[in-house]
Amino acid sequence: MRRTMLQSVFLYSCVVALALFTIAPLLWLVTMSISAPTDLTEVPLRWIPSEFDFSRYGALLNIDGGSGERFLSALRNSILTAGGATVIALMLAIPAAYSFSRRGASMVLLFAFLATIMMPPITYILPLYSTFSAFGMLNKTTTLIIVYTAMLLPFATWLMKANIDVLPVEVEQAAFMEGASTSYTIRTVVLPLALPAIAATAMLSFLVAWDEFFYALIFTNDLSAKTLPVAIADFSAGRVTDYGVIASVGVMATLPPAILAICFQKFIVSGLVAGSVKG
């Protein structure tokens, strides 16, 4: 259908408005991170920095500096925690998903799995806190990995199940007919076929773990285990006079998920849509 002039104007105004609404906050965050400290305290603000100042990034990446040490150790903890939990969650989720998809495990049980992550974390936090405290496991990356595994597991199982469902069952039957065991079939036939799904699930799981704040806030208390979200909350609550520092930490924490999201957009969006809609 042809658009009239008026319709075009309206359409493109909406487009511009949406684009601005979407990227302006991010653009401003980036701008703050490279503005001179004095630019950020002008009233009214100076929108275009008087000079580009990348020194904050340099400081963040310098392990010997105060903020650098805090940032880099948080980055390391975040990568270890999110990465570790993603790997373990997938290792548990794939067999479980296979059971739901091909061994007739009850859907009610899968719903129960999903219900556990839909519950507010405050429901679980205190007994977990007491238990971990009793075993001397507070402030440990391992502890967060265990908790995040449980947090990622239901969604990963669910996504993998949906993906195994659509694989041709005859291929597996053929493997069984040829004498392969279930675990051999999963390893040599199902996993290679499900590789794209596994990658998508792993990415989404990683992003969820990367984003997690509440458990990390409660279970960690120093550089040895604090993850990026907790470190950022600290930065922002602390008596930092240069807001550009906070902005630069924010930008750094956003880069990995943003890059993943942009590069693997198709994967991630289809995973998100499937994950939130299909029953």
């Binding site: 041709p168 291929v171 039957q173 053929a174 069984f176 007919m177 040829e178 392969a180 040599t188």
Partner: peptide, 16 residues
């Protein structure tokens, strides 16, 4: 199935 000493050709071929 594996112990029956049989082999099967599937409609969809079911190749790996």
């Amino acid at each position: 199935p594996a112990n029956r000493d049989i082999a099967m050709v599937f409609q969809s071929y079911a190749l790996f």
